[in-house]
Design a protein around this nucleic acid. Structure first.
Length: 296
DNA sequence: GGAAAATGATTAT
DNA sequence: TAATCCTTTTCCG
């Protein structure tokens, strides 16, 4: 259940662990058998993320495009070498899982375990493996198709060279509510339901303000906040948007109940003003906000 | 054992 | 706006 920060962590994980390696690619579940056959035995050139899309580039010039959707997830496992290389950074969560300990902890790794459940794709290298379940999209693409897929997406705040001015243009020229625009991947690639609600709160913006009703300074501040808070998400492997001064518990790690201002907090008091956090549906997704702090 | 929910997106009506 | 797809986990009986 990932937003863009999870996908960037996955790209990093794949690069550090599988780049330059020849991979066995299979589809234990069978639904991706034909695609897997086109990639099987190829070497991974690079793993990149744009928004919520993950691209694995192989040296026969084909790309594997993966979109996890609501509940897609990767499992990783392998020997000591693999785990040493893949445990860089903070503990991972959300769209990823803990590394499987399938060598008995004694260096007796003998390959991946029998697949459990519906494994769409299994990628196996010499020292480790990855299993993908439940993705919305999993398809092989040519370079031209990959470029076309990229071209449909707005700027990704997690890319260092992202074009913030392009985001400002796309946001402030549209008449739909900013609560919808933030979820629109043509406007901004990578934000999902949690970051939408949290960033709007942090900026004290009503979800019903239209893009056109925002000035470019407000839009840029919104962008900068997304960059900051999603960057933290990449580092931590979870979404924490509350500032320390707004938490009762100042401990580390931040308790689950203190991580958000409004997301899934309907009926609870706003951390700033004490009013009840509200919830409604916007475009079939649950939207959380503070009616007092985020007025039109 | 079964239903519901979940950090998503596309397609049809 | 509604239906549909994909899978696991959690909660309820």
């Amino acid at each position: 259940m990932p937003e863009g920060h999870s996908i960037h962590r996955l790209a990093r994980q794949f690069t550090s662990v599988f780049a330059g390696q020849q991979l066995s690619v299979s589809s234990p579940q069978g639904r991706f058998a034909a695609g897997a056959a086109r990639l099987d035995g190829q070497t991974l050139v690079a793993a990149t993320a744009h928004g919520k899309q993950l691209f694995l580039e192989f040296d026969n010039e084909l790309f594997l495009r993966i979109h996890l959707g609501l509940y897609g997830a990767f499992d990783f496992g392998g020997d000591e070498t693999f785990r040493g290389a893949s445990s860089i950074g903070a503990p991972r969560r959300v769209g990823e899982r803990e590394l499987a300990d399938d060598d008995g902890g004694r260096g007796t790794y003998a390959g991946p375990p029998p697949p459990k459940g519906a494994v769409r794709v299994r990628l196996v290298a010499e020292h480790g493996w990855a299993d993908l379940r439940g993705p919305t999209a999993c398809e092989v693409m040519t370079p031209g198709e990959q470029r076309a897929a990229l071209a449909k997406l707005g700027p990704d705040p997690l890319q260092p060279n992202a074009d913030s001015e392009e985001f400002v243009r796309r946001l402030t020229t549209r008449g739909s509510p900013v609560g919808l625009l933030l979820m629109n991947q043509e406007v901004l690639a990578g934000v999902g339901n949690v970051y939408r609600a949290e960033v709007l709160f942090r900026q004290r913006l009503s979800p019903w303000r239209t893009g056109k009703a925002l000035c470019s300074e407000q839009a840029l501040e919104l962008w900068n906040d997304v960059v900051s808070v999603m960057g933290d998400g990449v580092a931590a492997g979870r979404i924490v948007t509350t500032r320390q001064e707004h938490r009762g518990d100042r401990g580390v790690p931040v308790p689950t109940g203190e991580a958000h201002y409004v997301y899934k907090r309907q009926g609870l008091p706003c951390r700033i003003c004490g009013c009840e956090v509200a919830m409604t549906e916007m475009a079939a997704r649950k939207l959380y906000w503070c009616p007092a702090c985020q007025q039109e």
